[in-house]
């Protein structure tokens, strides 16, 4: 096990050195690549596919807060949820948010308001890698009010978000 561990560690370091250039080249692709799929229930086939750049083009808002999942205070940058829905011109009562691991949670449309949740795509000015709960993460201004530090709000703060279903 220990022998395996040391071996693996050495090999991993080696591999990492090799792929370093590839990683940097892939950054632009990551911005252009679609990361979020939005479906609206009232129009059956209507599906929007949005990249980080698309989201950044809609609106940008920063929230500086701590979270229960991270250590310390961070600056999250993202598109406000209401701006996103307004931009896509979809209506409904509930937003069903789904994560990569198919974790799904219902967010009432009322959370999509000014000063409310954002769909964050950057932390401390850097894109959020998938390994660090990215690329998209619904963030509430937790530190701003105890209202945002409830079990319900935490459950809605879905990370590794990749799909929003707007339900009638």
């Amino acid at each position: 096990m220990t022998t395996n561990g040391i071996f693996s560690f050495a090999r991993a370091a080696f591999v990492a050195a090799i792929v370093a250039t590839q990683g940097i080249a892939g950054t632009t692709d990551a911005i252009e690549a679609p990361v979020l799929e939005v479906t609206a229930g009232q129009v059956p086939d209507q599906t929007f596919s949005l990249s980080v750049q698309d989201l950044r083009d809609i609106a940008v808002r920063n929230i500086v807060t701590s979270t229960i999942w991270t250590e310390g205070v961070h600056e999250f940058t993202g598109v406000p949820l209401y701006a996103l829905l307004q931009h896509l011109n979809v209506t409904g009562s509930t937003i069903q948010a789904v994560a990569l691991n198919d974790y799904a949670v219902s967010i009432p449309l009322s959370d999509a308001r000014t000063g409310g949740a954002i769909v964050a795509f950057a932390i401390d000015g850097q894109p959020i890698p998938r390994r660090e709960k990215g690329p998209l993460w619904i963030i509430y201004p937790f530190d701003q009010s105890p209202e945002y530090r409830t079990e319900t709000v935490y459950s809605r703060s879905i990370w590794q978000l990749n799909r929003l279903n707007i339900i009638e």
Partner: peptide, 19 residues
Amino acid sequence: RKDFDILYSRVGILGNGKL
């Protein structure tokens, strides 16, 4: 890779999260 990233994110919460 995806499942690795998911697991990595989750363990990150246990290892660094305030919670």
